[in-house]
């Protein structure tokens, strides 16, 4: 039986009068890709920000790699974050640093004991893995949207994380680049055996990258399972509506 790397029970989060997450339950197994699907503003990004400790939950249990996020100490959070990678929607590359320096940054300042040679070796390896070795001395502003996403992923996997959180990895990209990013997510899973949560509203991405899909609507998960289980012909009205709306835009997707 596969080990459970993430366990969320009865999670609530609101901002002022706006209730974003209303009793979310979620489990993630080792080496599993879980896609969290949902419309914009349903709290998908809030969910992974709570998992990474960027924001705190109002109530509920969040256990990440054995750490309880409600009671975690500052030192344990620093330790946990070495094992949890986060790929931001807009890549969040450091503008003032070259691509090489961006990738070296967490190695240099989070793993302070690592040697210069090891940093170089790991940086070159991940740049090779995302197919952008030639960009090492370029600045982020010189790269395309797709390349920036790839570098964002490279900066995450350079730390060999056990859990990777992808926030809208294909948002704002053309269809061909989307497929390339989806393939890269699958390659990362294969190579690093990491568990992943992929936040998206892109059905192609969900179908291609997810071992399991969970549909987040109106603050809680409406349905969970494989892509075809979630969007089968007996799906509830709300689920069907979500699929139909996306289907109009992405006619090529077949269940």
């Amino acid at each position: 039986m596969k080990e459970n790397v993430l366990r969320i029970r009865n999670l609530y989060k609101s901002f002022g009068d706006l209730d974003v997450l209303k009793g979310v339950d979620l489990d993630l197994n080792q080496s599993e890709n879980l896609v969290v699907l949902g419309k914009s503003g349903t709290g998908k990004s809030v969910l992974i920000k709570i998992i990474s400790g960027l924001i705190t939950a109002d109530s509920g249990e969040v256990n990440v790699l054995g750490f309880d996020m409600n009671t975690i100490t500052k030192e344990d959070l620093i330790f946990l974050r070495l094992k949890v990678g986060f790929c931001f929607q807009n890549s969040a590359l450091y503008d003032s640093m070259t691509i090489g320096e961006n990738i070296e940054f967490p190695l240099k300042y989070a793993l302070k004991t690592i040697s210069r040679q090891e940093i170089e070796k790991r940086t070159d390896r991940v740049l090779e893995a995302v197919g952008l070795r030639q960009t090492k001395n370029q600045m982020p502003a010189e790269l395309s949207g797709g390349q920036r996403k790839r570098i964002g992923i490279a900066r995450t996997i350079v730390m060999n994380p056990e859990l990777i959180l992808y926030d809208e990895p294909t948002a704002g990209l053309d269809p061909i680049t989307c497929v390339e990013i989806n393939n890269l997510i699958l390659e990362v899973k294969e190579e690093y055996q990491a568990s992943s949560i992929i936040i998206t509203h892109d059905l192609t991405c969900a179908k291609q990258t997810g071992d399991r899909v969970a549909l987040l609507l109106e603050g809680s998960f409406q349905k969970e399972g494989t892509f075809s289980e979630v969007f089968n012909s007996h799906a509830e009205n709300k689920v069907k509506q979500f699929y139909d709306y996306n289907f109009m835009e992405q006619e090529t997707i077949k269940i």
Binding site: R81, F88, A92, Y94, D95, R155
Partner: peptide
């Protein structure tokens, strides 16, 4: 302007999630 732009483009959050203390740096 520099830190403001880093904040709104989530570069500060990116430092935080990679175990680097952004306040220090």
């Amino acid at each position: 302007a520099e830190l403001g732009s880093m904040k709104v483009t989530e570069q500060i959050a990116a430092m935080e999630v990679s175990s680097v203390n952004p306040f220090n740096f």
